[in-house]
């Protein structure tokens, strides 16, 4: 009896040691490359911290945060980011939802369609944006097509009015596939019997979508909307691609986003204290969206 207890304790000990050893490499990396930088970021957001003029760094308290809230460039970036978010998120969610429902019907070539819709999501954003830049130059078939609807026949990404819509189009085009995947896996959890019994009751496909699919998918829809917002609030690569040799956010700040504004401060002006304060504010904005998600989904369950 005593022997068995001893063996069990020894096994328990060795299990614990193995667990810590399994977690050790990740823990070390996490400590060095996550915890320290995160804490450091909060810390230097309270300093005037320049990477190039180190000797003049000093404590400024909440000075950087006050400066952000007084900076017209911040509001320009915020406005652009919110425009992109509130156009792109409903658009990509609705298109993805409808396409997922279509793909969930018993149709031929379903896998082919699905693959085609996913593909944009897996390729480099810089590459995708580059291709679209050529597709939307002045006089191209696409710009001429859009000019029929009253838009100017100009090169979109250098036009002050059309540069941000351009980025939004590229963004939505690339993101749709991701949300189709999410919706499709959500649709698979809706029991087939629900549809079959409603079919017996004579419900049309449209009615079935509104009265069965949407309520059943509510948690997934919230997830898609909130995750979509969190992601859209951090757009950067598209902005970098269209800027070419001009400053980030070109033309004239028309494509400046929260993250590109942060990047300019931290890595172009080397004002890393100020940049970190902006990063903390972006985090706060994202955190609020996440809490909203938690609240909604928590209520669902």
């Amino acid at each position: 009896m005593g022997q068995i207890v001893k063996t069990l304790t020894r096994n328990r000990r060795s299990e614990e040691i193995t667990a810590y050893l399994f977690l050790l490499p990740v823990a070390v990396l996490w400590f060095i490359w996550f915890l320290i930088p995160t804490a450091y970021s909060m810390f230097i957001s309270l300093y005037k911290y320049s990477f190039v003029a180190v000797s003049q760094n000093h404590f400024v308290g909440l000075g950087n945060y006050i400066r952000v809230l007084k900076d017209p460039d911040f509001y320009k970036a915020l406005k652009n980011t919110l425009f992109l978010t509130f156009v792109a998120v409903p658009a990509q969610s609705l298109i993805a939802f409808l396409l997922a429902i279509a793909l969930n019907l018993r149709i031929k070539f379903r896998d082919v369609f699905r693959t085609i819709y996913y593909v944009p999501y897996v390729v480099s954003t810089i590459a995708v944006t580059t291709v679209f830049m050529y597709l939307f130059v002045k006089g191209s078939p696409l710009t001429r097509l859009f000019s029929l609807f009253g838009l100017d026949n100009v090169t979109w990404y250098v036009d002050f009015k059309l540069a941000l819509p351009f980025i939004t189009i590229v963004y939505v085009w690339q993101q749709i596939g991701f949300y189709i995947v999410i919706f499709l896996s959500g649709l698979q959890t809706v029991p087939r019997e629900l549809y079959e019994s409603s079919e017996v009751d004579g419900a049309s496909p449209f009615q079935r979508t509104i009265y069965i699919t949407v309520p059943m998918l509510k948690p997934v829809i919230f997830m898609v909307l909130v995750y979509g917002m969190i992601h859209a609030l951090q757009v950067f690569d598209q902005v970098a691609a269209v800027a070419q040799n001009q400053p980030l956010g070109s033309p004239a700040g028309a494509t400046s986003t929260l993250v590109s504004f942060f990047y300019v401060q931290s890595f172009k002006n080397w004002e890393m204290g100020y940049g970190s304060a902006i990063a903390v504010i972006i985090f706060a904005i994202i955190f609020i969206f996440t809490m909203i998600q938690k609240k909604f989904i928590g209520n669902e369950e």
């Binding site: 996490w30 060095i32 490359w33 996550f34 320290i36 930088p37 995160t38 450091y40 970021s41 230097i44 990477f51 951090q234 993250v259 942060f262 990047y263 931290s266 890595f267 890393m272 940049g275 970190s276 902006i278 990063a279 903390v280 972006i282 985090f283 994202i286 955190f287 996440t290």
Partner: peptide, 21 residues
């Protein structure tokens, strides 16, 4: 819980100190 919380922190918050390091 730490793993879950780490997924929420946006990369902008990390990259500046990471670059300095």
């Amino acid at each position: 819980i730490i793993v879950l919380a780490s997924m929420m922190v946006p990369f902008q918050l990390i990259i500046t100190p990471m670059y300095i390091m």
